[in-house]
Structure formats: structure tokens, C-alpha cells
């Protein structure tokens, strides 16, 4: 099965000269339909960098990132933005909610920007909020919610609609153990239904919901546990 997300020899260097930081070095990596992949590694190891590249929010210094077979570099800013509104769901490490919009409005915004009718967008948003367990907070503003509730709004935004690729950066950081587990169950269910997911987490307990766990260190994949890494290597053309 062809990969939803494919990174081939991706390097990302921030800055230049003395202050140059190699955030990622020649990383190859794929996530296929139905697959949830977790990324673990110490702070600064390049996890968020990998995810922003996968989400088309940043571009690699070298190597390529493809989503559903399309090299993001060939899309241009507009094309990438379109993809982010439709195919890719992204949960930011710091939530990234718009304070002037209610929970439901935050969740429905990508669909509305894409031209979905407001009522249909709101219905999808309410359903996503229901799935993360905060349907009752639909008309609240982010400032009037707890950290964990805001985090769930951010997750609802990423799963609303039919996203083929869900990218989540520490989506359980602000949640207690039981709520965190519910979120993992939800991500898992989305992947079981055919989406591909990439989950960045510090918590091994959450990473264990993934089919594969990739360990990053200093921008390099040092280790991988879980099912058929060999097949993935072939798939990603790393060998």
C-alpha cells in the first residue's frame, strides 16, 4: 500500500555558519494508511521539526516530503495551505487556537476556509468536539477553558472532517492519564478507519498505542520498535 506520508532523506538545517543547527539529518520515514507511528526522543531531538515538515508548515533543506504521493515542494504555498485545510489534521504542541473564536468556530474554521457551508462545518465541528468529550463547551472561548480542554479543542480541529493524515505534537501533554488514554483510543480508531497518524510524545505509555515507535536523537532516527520496520525501509527507499 502506498504511503500517505513519505519523507525521503530529509535534512533540515536552521541558521547558517556558527549558529547552524542540524535539526534533522537524512531522515527517511513513511506512514501508510491505517498506521499510527509514534515519535519519541529527548527535547531538541527534532520531533517538532519533523512534524512541521510533514505538515507542510516548513520546508526541508534537502530531501523530499510527500503527502498522498504529492511532493509538497511542488505545490507552492497555496497548494500546501489547501492540503492543510483538507487532507492534513495538525495538533500543535501549543494548541494554536484563535482566542477570538469559540471552540466550535476554531474547529470548523479549516472547513469553512475551504468553502464548506457553515452549517455543515458546524455539524462536523460539534461531532468532533463530542468525540473528544467536550461537546458542552462548543460555544466557549479558549481563554475560558482549562489547558486540557483547550488541548481537546485542538485535537477536535485536527480530526474534524475526513483527514487522511493526522499529525499530533504532544497531544496529551495537558491531559490526565485517563483523558490522555481516551485521546489515544480516538487517534487509534481514526487510523484503524484508514487514516495515517504520526504522534509525537514523551510518554512511552502513549507511544505504545502506535504500530511503530521511532526514536529520534539529535535529528537522527536511532531506533525503531514495532511491526515490520523492514517493509517500511523498502517502502521508503532507504535501502
Amino acid at each position: 500500500m502506498s504511503a500517505v506520508l513519505q519523507l525521503a532523506g530529509v535534512t533540515r538545517i536552521h541558521g547558517a555558519g556558527e549558529t547552524e543547527v542540524h535539526a534533522l539529518r537524512a531522515v527517511s520515514f513513511a506512514a501508510r494508511p491505517g498506521e499510527l507511528v509514534a515519535i519519541m526522543g529527548p527535547s531538541g531531538s527534532g520531533k517538532s521539526t519533523l512534524l512541521t515538515l510533514a505538515g507542510g508548515l516548513d520546508q526541508p533543506t534537502s530531501g523530499s516530503v510527500s503527502v498522498e504521493g504529492v511532493d509538497l515542494a511542488t505545490l507552492g504555498n497555496k497548494g500546501r495551505a489547501r492540503m492543510r485545510r483538507t487532507s492534513i489534521g495538525y495538533v500543535f504542541q501549543d494548541f494554536n487556537l484563535i482566542p477570538a473564536l469559540t471552540a466550535a468556530e476554531n474547529v470548523s474554521l479549516p472547513a469553512e476556509l475551504h468553502g464548506t457551508r457553515p452549517r455543515a462545518a458546524r455539524r462536523a465541528a460539534l461531532q468532533a468536539l463530542e468525540e473528544v468529550g467536550i461537546a458542552d463547551l462548543a460555544d466557549r472561548f479558549p481563554d475560558h477553558m482549562s489547558g486540557g480542554q483547550q488541548q481537546r479543542v485542538a485535537i477536535a480541529r485536527a480530526i474534524a472532517g475526513e483527514r487522511r493524515l493526522i499529525l499530533a505534537d504532544e497531544p496529551t501533554g495537558a491531559l490526565d492519564t485517563e483523558t490522555g488514554e481516551e485521546i489515544l483510543r480516538l487517534l487509534r480508531a481514526r487510523c484503524d478507519a484508514g487514516a495515517a497518524g504520526v504522534l509525537v510524545t514523551h510518554e512511552a505509555r502513549h507511544a505504545a498505542w502506535a504500530d511503530r515507535v521511532v526514536f529520534l536523537r539529535d535529528g537522527v532516527v536511532v531506533d525503531e520498535s514495532g511491526s515490520d520496520p523492514a517493509e517500511t525501509l523498502l517502502d521508503s527507499g532507504a535501502r
Partner: peptide, 22 residues
């Protein structure tokens, strides 16, 4: 403090190792 020492192996080698481990 977070700087690596020694710098880890590039990805291909590391993955080959993983396959061996598996």
C-alpha cells in the same frame, strides 16, 4: 549540555542495526 557526543550514526546505519536487533 544537550549537544551530542559522539555524534550518532547517520540513519541508514542506525536502521540496519535496528533490523539486526529485531
Amino acid at each position: 549540555v544537550e549537544r551530542p557526543s559522539p555524534v550518532p550514526e547517520p540513519v541508514e546505519t542506525a536502521k540496519a542495526e535496528t533490523t539486526e536487533t529485531a
